[in-house]
């Protein structure tokens, strides 16, 4: 069987080319159209990114003189080194890690627990609870920013957790917001996946005397590795890309994660757009890398649990 499949494919591709020239031309015309459309779409999508890269390689004085739509006199990496030194990017990358890595782990832990209970045990309100968790996802987070800002301002933290003594302007605040807003989606995805795992597995474990915790930790969780990997990829990208929360909830420039820190590179009036383009490209690299190398997980993250098993 395994040897037949490739041959069949080859057979199907070759004969039309040789035997039916007319059919081939028709196909080619359709294909040309298809490829033109695809190439155009790809270009439209890539253009802003490529333009940012191009801009980032040109000195500001040159683009100010000739305009952004012009041929370069010479390309330079100066903007990138400026972004690193003047923009202090390494520090802000580190801030992002401080927020995103714990938030990711806690989100997955909490949502897998919730999903386990909601999908593996039948009780009166579990559908309702799942609905509430999912509905929370539909709420635009920006709506609650004003009350959240005030609450965070009034919640005291010990100074070893935040030198300002409040939840506002602390890594904890942004961490909590991320966890709260992502748990709903992850629970939804994980519970759909867990529903597909045969009940016989946990039933057998129950007969052998496994506690609920044991069933969760030793049976279900290891089986959920694929959706967990997918969600981790997706969630990392989302949390990493977040611009809004830290912008509002952090008022010390040095604490901000990389995305919001970019905002501070603007001047009150004068903004060196080429420098910002360079910093943006650097900031986009990790997400692009995650996407390229973990593409499979990425797609699965969006579709896992979409079909009912």
């Amino acid at each position: 069987m395994t040897s037949v499949v490739p041959e069949l494919l080859i057979e199907e591709q070759r004969p039309p080319a040789a035997v039916h020239p007319a059919r081939r031309r028709r196909l080619t015309f359709a294909r040309v159209c298809l490829h033109v459309v695809l190439a155009t779409t790809a270009l439209v999508w890539l253009l802003p990114l490529l333009w940012a890269v191009y801009t980032s390689l040109r000195p500001y004085a040159e683009t100010a003189r000739k305009g952004y739509v012009s041929w370069p006199d010479g390309l330079t990496l100066q903007n990138y080194s400026d972004a690193f030194t003047q923009g202090e990017l390494p520090r802000f990358f580190f801030n992002t890690l401080i927020i995103v890595v714990p938030a990711l782990l806690v989100t997955l832990l909490l949502s897998s627990m919730a999903a386990f209970v909601l999908s593996r045990f039948a009780f009166r309100f579990n559908l309702l609870i799942l609905l509430i968790l999912t509905a929370g996802n539909l709420l635009p987070p920006q709506v609650i920013i004003t009350p959240l800002f005030q609450i965070f301002r009034l919640v005291a933290l010990p100074t070893f957790m935040n030198s300002d003594g409040t939840l506002l302007n602390s890594y904890w605040g942004v961490f909590i917001v991320h966890v709260a807003f992502q748990v709903g989606f992850c629970t939804f995805v994980l519970s759909n996946y867990m529903k597909m795992i045969p009940h016989e597995l946990t039933d057998a474990a129950l007969v052998d005397g496994a506690s609920v915790w044991r069933q969760y930790f030793s049976i279900i969780l290891p089986l959920c590795r694929p959706p967990l990997a997918a969600l981790a990829t997706l969630q990392f990208t989302w949390m990493y890309n977040d611009f809004f929360w830290a912008l509002v909830l952090m008022v010390s420039g040095e604490k901000r994660p990389i995305t919001s820190a970019l905002d501070n590179l603007r001047g009150t009036f004068f903004t060196d757009n080429n420098l910002i383009a360079a910093a943006s490209v650097l900031i986009a690299l990790p997400t692009i890398a995650v996407y390229v190398f973990l593409q499979k997980h990425f797609v699965r993250g969006l579709t896992v649990g979409a079909t009912k098993g």
Partner: peptide
């Protein structure tokens, strides 16, 4: 120094007063 562009968020900034 707190190198933060707060021009457009002055309300938040002054309320939090870092």
């Amino acid at each position: 120094t707190n190198k933060l562009l707060y021009t457009e968020q002055i309300n938040n900034y002054l309320t939090a007063a870092p």
